[in-house]
Design a protein around this nucleic acid. Structure first.
Lengths: 213, 213
DNA sequence: CCGCCCGTAGTCAAACTTGACTACAGATCC
DNA sequence: GGATCTGTAGTCAAGTTTGACTACGGGCGG
């Protein structure tokens, strides 16, 4: 599963009630089109799908004042909130070497209580280390790692990446434990959504690096 | 585009002529099902698709001796080889933060001459550094990075990952320049394929880490 | 000697993703 | 004042991915 469901659920949740274009705009504001598959088609598809599955509630709305086709507004349901929290927690904990998942979860990490966030991140570290141990053992032939030839470099890459992931996670834990950011139940939350009509300072980024995708 | 095309093209190419199940087995031998979308459906789909596009040549074959439905064998074409090399080169150079792409390319890096491999990896380093520069500039608001709140951690993660990528790539360059591995035109190549009937020492890995995917 | 499981080989429908496209209202420019 | 541009909102067909399923032959236990 991709990061799209978490992103869309989280965006709708932050608005309370949102139509597709609003979600699309938020995700662009977060730069999500750069590090995830948050393209129009995927977003609208996810909205419809999750509405069908009872995670969102769809309201048909009269055509907007600002031109274009009739809109549909979505609201998150009980089940949707539960799914959102499940996705959020599991993406924070699990090491699946998919950066988009982690990035998406990171964007909503403050929706959890501070203590839980730290706890989950510690589990993440433990998980990565366990993965590292098992993978290095498993893929080391008896005749020594030379037997793998250049294929061994793939494992080398994984391990290097895993180590970097541990280091980064440890840093984040320290920052959170040190009091950074505002978490659930700590008053005025940080909201990364655009107010109606606010301009997007990070609008579609032709301005910066073409990243050769 | 995913890593599947490169993996399948490369596997067929190493065999000279292969049927789907052989490719599927090779990819499992390389552990590709763990770090890419190399599942049966995707593999057979890719084979058919690329045959339709003229990158592979399909031969209908009599049912195998070992039971099961009639097989199709594939051979790589001129166009397929060209595509293979293009994919290989571009995946080595471009930093798209998708580890599966890089891993796949790494598996075939020795199909290039040593000098070219080094050159491409150096381009990779340059590309990552350029990306890092542009991203840190672009996403730093005038009021200082605190304005981003916890969202800034996403960028932090990217940058950390990019730095790790540079470090790892530099290490690989050094190893290659130091004479490691056997590259194209240097005699007896390393082949990571299973001979007919050889058992797979890394068979489907229930044995090691469940990675919570 | 027969029912059952295992390995070989591949298919299929359902879901998801992609990128290009439509449609409309207001602003802008000669 | 009409042509064209821009921003809003979403659709669509084509392609891809997934996970479960089919089909067949051989070996093996009872």
């Amino acid at each position: 599963m991709s990061a799209i469901r978490l992103l869309v659920l989280g965006a709708v949740r932050q608005h309370g009630r949102a139509h597709g274009y609003q979600v699309r705009n938020d995700l662009e504001y977060w730069g999500a089109h750069e590090w995830s598959n948050a393209k129009p088609g995927s977003i609208y598809h996810a909205l419809k799908q999750m509405a069908k599955q009872g995670l969102l509630l769809a309201h048909e709305i009269a055509p907007s004042t600002a031109g274009g086709p009739p809109r549909t507004e979505y609201e998150i349901t009980e089940a949707g909130t539960e799914e959102f929290l499940n996705l959020l927690r599991s993406n924070l904990v699990s090491y699946d070497q998919r950066p988009d998942m982690l990035s998406a979860a990171l964007g909503f990490i403050v929706d959890l209580p501070r203590g839980e966030a730290v706890e989950l991140l510690k589990q993440r570290v433990a998980g990565i280390e366990e993965w590292r141990r098992s993978v290095t053992e498993y893929y080391t032939p008896e005749e020594g790692p030379e037997q793998l030839g250049h294929i061994g470099e793939i494992m080398n890459l994984w391990v290097h990446t895993a180590d970097g992931g541990v280091e980064w996670t440890r840093g984040l834990i320290k920052r959170i434990e040190g009091g950074a950011y505002t978490f659930a139940g700590e008053g005025e939350p940080f909201v990364g959504v655009l107010a109606e009509g606010e301009e997007n300072p990070y609008a579609t980024g032709e301005a910066h690096a073409e990243d050769d995708r």
